[in-house]
Design a protein around this nucleic acid. Structure first.
Lengths: 139, 139
DNA sequence: ATTATGATTGAGAATGATTATTTAACAAAA
DNA sequence: TTTTGTTAAATAATCATTCTCAATCATAAT
């Protein structure tokens, strides 16, 4: 789990997974990605997508987001940034907020843990859901 | 999912789940709690534990932590506070850091979401794992 | 007290996400 | 070209969680 991550070869499958992930601004789940990739590689297996997402995340080529909700999500943009998750539909978007480096320092001073990183996740209602809620909320 | 949460009756099962959760400073998973509760109520079902944790979280009686890792964790302390998760053993501890109220304001200004809250999760290596890693790391 | 009504339970089946296993195809090295 | 190791696909297995349902319990009305 803590090995320095071995270099991996960029096979057709890996390249296409990477391309499809980079293509979208959303943060697809493994099975969403599976559906996207299958349009170009109809015979690819779901297991292959999982395995390679995991591998590429270990290599720092992509980001694995362990955000709330049941499924993990992936991100081709590896610069650290915060996320917001719609508590209504589960969608995850990037948050346009600078990373607070100071948080890690403050944390290190207040904890006996060896701090490795941090992650901020906002919850809220996305514009789409605000609209449909407005309709339903008349009661 | 967004209803104002109906009042619930405090059954024996619910009370004992609540008591066992309040008893520990850790943030047990549903099945850890199941094991704890079963010592006092040997015939309780795992489904009952899941069902009632969910209900009590909806009622704000407890906190459901959607932190990283595969399992959800629960917390009897409902004041908002931050957490740190050991990336080695998965343990979750409280973080002795004041909540940054300002974050929500800043977020609201920079997003089209209607912000409901936020949650900060640090990752790091806990003291226990630092020790055992020290041993393993000689290579 | 008796009965009706709905809430809650325990047991286990079902589901959904993920990981592991097996066998086959493939690529690089010898 | 045989050998060796890497990667893939298919599928089985696992894990956490949710669902279903008959049985039980609590409460209020008779």
């Amino acid at each position: 789990m803590n090995a320095p991550a071995p270099m991996i070869r960029l096979t057709t499958q890996r390249q296409i997974i990477l391309e499809e992930l980079a293509k979208v601004k959303s943060h697809p789940t493994a099975s969403e990605l599976y559906d996207m990739v299958r349009k170009r590689l109809p015979r690819i297996g779901l297991g292959t997508v999982y395995r390679n997402l995991e591998l590429m995340a270990d290599n720092g080529m992509i980001l694995k987001l362990e955000v709330g909700g049941t499924q993990k999500r992936f991100d081709a943009i590896t610069d650290p940034h915060y996320h917001i998750r719609c508590s209504c539909c589960g969608k995850v978007d990037d948050m346009e907020l600078p990373i607070i480096d100071n948080l890690v320092n403050t944390a290190a001073e207040n904890s006996s843990y060896q701090i490795l990183g941090h992650h901020v996740e906002f919850t809220g209602v996305c514009p789409d859901c605000q609209q449909s809620q407005g309709i339903n909320a008349i009661q």
